[in-house]
Structure formats: structure tokens, C-alpha cells
Write a protein that binds this DNA or RNA. Structure first.
Lengths: 116, 116
DNA sequence: TCATCATATCAGTATATGATGATATTATAT
DNA sequence: ATATAATATCATCATATACTGATATGATGA
């Protein structure tokens, strides 16, 4: 049965989705889709600041979406589970098909709005 | 290829995930997982106010996650695509396995925090 | 030990966004 | 036509949360 039935679990699951719902975190997950990267490499790949990346990585790590492995001075991050990648792919397909209207959604704006 | 490659698409996709990242919206999607419901039934199923449900439904509708069909005075809502349900199920499994740490994530709090 | 590089932490701030309450709309029945 | 039921819209407010900048921690090499 789905955990979803339990209202407490709904909050937890919403929290899980929040891992994916911010452009910065999503670009980090995307960068990791092809394999492990160091924090510095993620910074370079995403164009975010080191502090910001590190904050988001802590978030993703706590959530269990990524795992960290120290190697010397570097910390390598990678997706914790192939299903994380599957979620990204599924969402991508949804976007391509039915969810094109996301552009129009005005209840929440992820930075940019329709006029760009 | 994944849309994700394009930075603009990352924002769109983040927006898509936001559809799932709020407990109220998620409980609405969950309620619809078993089939179409009227707004009133969703209100009853979720315990949210009519206004709130309607606002969130507009959001989900604009995003393309649900579709609406008027029948007399009632409007029936249902998930727009089976992959929406698949996303819910995948997330559920992720939670059960690797993402238990979501409880601990302190960067963002969905209402409740660890002390409950 | 000390210097340096890589990463993490944290407080402060500005903004985004969810909830509410009032009101508007639309559909049906009498 | 009017009343009523079902749903939608909108402005307001309070809160959550992402970003920044400064600093701290930890690892390595000299």
C-alpha cells in the first residue's frame, strides 16, 4: 500500500518533492545524473556559488537523494538511487507531453515568469 | 535527450515538481489517485477549505497535472496522465528505501518539524 | 606546525508562496 | 426570473525558504 494514505507521510513526501522543486537543487541533481562530481565541479557545472551549492547539497544529503564520499580533500557526490534519476526522466517526459502548461502556472513563480 | 540540459527547462521542471511539493496539493493528487472526484469531494477528502482547494486545483490544472470536466453543477477532476500516478508511486518507494532522512532535512520545513 | 585548498556552517535578508475571507461566477431547479 | 448550490477568483497577510557573505572546519603537503 502507498504510504500516502497516512497524512503524516504526505508531509514527508511533499518534503521529498521539495528536493526536486528548486531550480538550484534540480540543476545539481541534473549535473549528477551522469555520475559523481566533487563540490567544486558541481559549482562549475551549475554556476551557483560554493556556499549555495554546499547548502543545497546538505539538504539533498539529509533527504537521502544524494550520497557523499570523501576522497582526500574532495567530497564526491552522487545520486543515492537510480530511482532519483527515474523521477527526473519521468518528469521530463511529463513536461514534454501533458504538462506544457507549467509555463502558465501563476500560483508560484520560479524566478522567471511568462514574459521571458 | 533530456530537456534538463537546457537551463530554461530546469526552471520549468522545478515548477512541475512544485506541483507535488506542497502537502495540500499532494493530498489532492493522492485523493485523485483512485479516480475522478468533484471539488466538494476533494474538500471532504483532504479537510482543506473550499477556497484553498480551488486555488490549488487551478494551479494543478494550469500545470497540466490534473484535468477538469464539468458535469452539471459539478466539476470533476482527475489526474491528467498515468505518469503523474507513477511519480507518486516512485516517490513513495524512494521514501521507503533511501530517503528516510527526509525527516531530518532542516533547510526547509513543511509545517511540521522533527519534534512531532 | 603552518599554509593552503576544499568544503561546510551560519546569521541576516529579501522574496516567494500558501492560507484565509470575501466576493464573483456559473449552473440548475422552481 | 430568482434562489440556491458548486466552484472560482482575488487581495491580503504571515511565513517559509533561497541567496549572500563571512567564517569555521577538515584534509593535505611543505
Amino acid at each position: 500500500m502507498l504510504l500516502l494514505a497516512n497524512p503524516k507521510s504526505i508531509e514527508i513526501q511533499a518534503k521529498l518533492f521539495r528536493g526536486f522543486s528548486d531550480p538550484s537543487r534540480l540543476s545539481i541533481l541534473d549535473a549528477l545524473h551522469n555520475g559523481a562530481l566533487t563540490v567544486g565541479e558541481i559549482v562549475e557545472a551549475t554556476g551557483l556559488t560554493q556556499s549555495n551549492v554546499s547548502n543545497h547539497l546538505a539538504c539533498l544529503r539529509d533527504c537521502g537523494l544524494v550520497i557523499a564520499e570523501q576522497q582526500g580533500r574532495f567530497v564526491y557526490y552522487e545520486l543515492s538511487d537510480q530511482r532519483v534519476g527515474q523521477l527526473l526522466t519521468l518528469a521530463d517526459q511529463l513536461l514534454a507531453d501533458v504538462a506544457k502548461g507549467v509555463y502558465e502556472c501563476t500560483r508560484y513563480n520560479v524566478k522567471a515568469s511568462k514574459n521571458d
